[in-house]
Design a protein around this nucleic acid. Structure first.
Lengths: 162, 162
DNA sequence: GAATTAAGGATATATGTTATCCGCGAATGG
DNA sequence: CCATTCGCGGATAACATATATCCTTAATTC
């Protein structure tokens, strides 16, 4: 059970977009260069964010991406689910139905007890991600990243933002 | 991010093994028939349980598997990790190191803030699974599965247990 | 000694992830 | 108006992992 690397990419990109001044956009090219990622493939992750309405886009030179709403209203779960999908990590194939001791056509009233536990764990995972906002990440980064790196990074970004 | 179907298989098999009388074993063949699963491939899942010392085995006719300890001392997490591995679902590739604004050779004091959140969610998932014991599953099943199916299933199993 | 079992290696197939390339239409700037 | 820049989506390929089967070996039972 391993998340796509696109999840990591999307989270880092959103953290950068959160620091953009209002009304400006940042292109895939800039985001790819900043993180050392393959531009074409990163583009797929950003398209996922766009389809989930987490970001807005504009075309042409000086076009690119910006957040569709304040970073305090975007959760980790929003971003993770946009890229990874909303499907649960455990899929129940109902193997209890193969039990040869079952009467034919017997119908279960509840989902399988095994699945219920696995889904509960899945919910715990999602709840943790739901409680963390993108703005929390930005706060943490602004505390932990050395001020000179933080500053020069956003100078680098602003030079490329449209 | 999807768990292997072997996780589902292992959990169901352990639930059956938990109902075996002391000292008896149940073979891969019986477990595969009971759940309608491919015998050879299910065998790989059971081997994982064996390597994790969750079950004990014996060879020859009337051989097979039994739990290595009481079902109250085996957690869902034990079984899931035996099959799925203990690696975290999120792997941090440290793309912050690719930031062109970083001084060469700069070393981070902490793991990436993005990774820390993702790992926290992973821990929440694991904690949920850690808190549920195999004996809890058996309790739930014995309440929910209709008594006649429950009984006939274990008659079926006992007929094949060595 | 014959049958049965778990264990593990080798191999094949299917699916999913990672990645690249291309063409389209929209927007920008000259 | 035109060349460039962009997001978007489709097609495709390389690679890894999951799923599945087959076979051999050694241990055990009867």
């Amino acid at each position: 059970m391993i998340l796509k690397s696109q999840v990591e990419w999307a989270l880092h990109c959103c953290a950068i977009l959160a620091g953009l001044p209002d009304g400006s956009y940042l292109s895939t090219k800039a985001l790819a260069e900043l993180h050392g990622l393959p531009k074409e493939y990163l583009s797929k992750a950003l398209q996922s964010l766009s389809q989930a309405s987490l970001v807005e886009t504009t075309l042409g030179p000086s076009g690119g991406y910006r957040l569709a709403r304040p970073s305090s209203e975007i959760s980790f779960l929003d971003i993770v689910e946009a890229v990874e999908g909303k499907a649960r990590s455990f899929t129940c194939t109902n193997i209890r139905e193969n039990n040869p001791c079952r009467p034919a056509g017997y119908c279960d009233s509840k989902p399988c007890a095994v699945a219920r536990v696995m889904w509960e764990a899945d919910e715990a995972w999602r709840n943790t991600l739901r409680r963390v906002r993108l703005s929390d990440l930005v706060d943490t980064l602004s505390e932990e990243v050395p001020p000179d790196i933080w500053r020069s990074t956003f100078e680098w970004v602003l030079k490329r933002a449209g």
